[in-house]
Design a binder for these strands. Structure first.
Length: 286
DNA sequence: AGCTACTCCTGGTAGC
DNA sequence: TGCTACCAGGAGTAGC
């Protein structure tokens, strides 16, 4: 589903047609997409505002707005599972899953389309408050070996669950966690406080590599859902080592990929490349 | 502190 | 063909 590389791709593609544009009108066909605000209030907040910037933070797209050259808030958007964004000519038909439409002074219109209705396009005056709980960006300068190693060992968490925790590290989802762990030859059930500094450094390197490669390929598309704002699929799914490859041979050692469930998430491992952590009694720890 | 279960949603698919 | 049942999952929340 859309994770950091897909969200980054969407942000890059919609940015040129949004920045500098003024929102002239809007329509909303699913109120919950707005995340709690009334449609009338949303309309008052966005119509007449001008887009200053389009940035990605974790899996959020933040569309900053201004009025009379003064900041007036932002649209904080999340694609969740099936959200899509398009900026198209005014007569373009967004289809039956359209949720939010923002008409622009360019004559084009921004569309938020979402089959499963989990996605959000939320207006807030203080976007930083909404995003305050997020951990560091995996591709950012704050994500250092030193920080990662210390932070992993300061907690006693199942490794995969911790990497999915957006308050710990912001931007990874199910796919890229599975891929990163395989590349780092780490098992998803490994406990975070048992990680060596060397293992942490390898994992950090592989997380950054897999995300960078996926961004270069405009993300991953393997079902009907994720498409770039230009309507094209990404191509990183061709590079998957484990995700969605249950029972298929590992590309490194030919052992069949195994599927397990970790924290209610489908999880894919190579039992040979990613040996299971040694089980031990909790009372046996000194 | 960290875990599980549940919620929100619907298209796709397996089984009959 | 058409039905039912179940699966996928990001994030928030409740409860242990």
């Amino acid at each position: 589903m859309p994770e950091l590389p897909e969200v980054e791709t969407v942000a890059r593609m919609i940015r040129p047609s949004l920045v500098g544009r003024t929102i002239t009108s809007c329509s909303v066909t699913w109120k919950r997409t707005l995340g709690g605000s009334e449609i009338a209030a949303f309309r008052r907040n966005v119509v007449g505002a001008r887009v200053v910037s389009v940035e990605r933070r974790a899996k959020y797209i933040v569309i900053a707005l201004e009025r009379a050259r003064a900041s007036c808030g932002a649209l904080v958007c999340h694609l969740r599972m099936t959200g899509r964004m398009h900026v198209e000519r005014a007569d373009w038909d967004p289809g039956k899953f359209a949720k939010v439409r923002l008409d622009l002074d360019s004559g084009r219109a921004f569309h938020f389309i979402d089959v499963r209705k989990f996605g959000r396009v939320e207006f807030t005056r203080e976007p930083h408050e909404l995003l305050a709980e997020l951990g560091p960006e995996p591709l950012g300068a704050d994500f250092t070996d030193e920080w990662f190693s210390t932070a992993l060992r300061a907690r006693r968490r199942v490794l995969k669950s911790l990497l999915l925790d957006q308050a710990f590290l912001a931007g990874l989802g199910n796919i890229y966690v599975d891929e990163s762990l395989h590349r780092a030859r780490l098992h998803p059930l490994q406990l975070s406080d048992r990680m060596t500094r060397e293992q942490a450094a390898v994992l950090r390197r592989e997380i950054r590599a897999v995300l960078s490669e996926a961004i270069a390929r405009e993300g991953s598309s393997f079902d009907a859902f994720y498409r770039t704002p230009e309507g094209n699929p990404g191509s990183f799914q061709d590079q998957f080592q484990v995700y969605g490859r249950t029972a298929e041979p590992c590309r490194s050692c030919a052992t069949p990929i195994r599927r397990l469930v970790v924290g209610q998430r489908g999880t894919h491992v190579c039992p040979q490349c990613q040996p299971a952590p040694r089980r031990r009694r909790s009372s046996a720890q000194g």
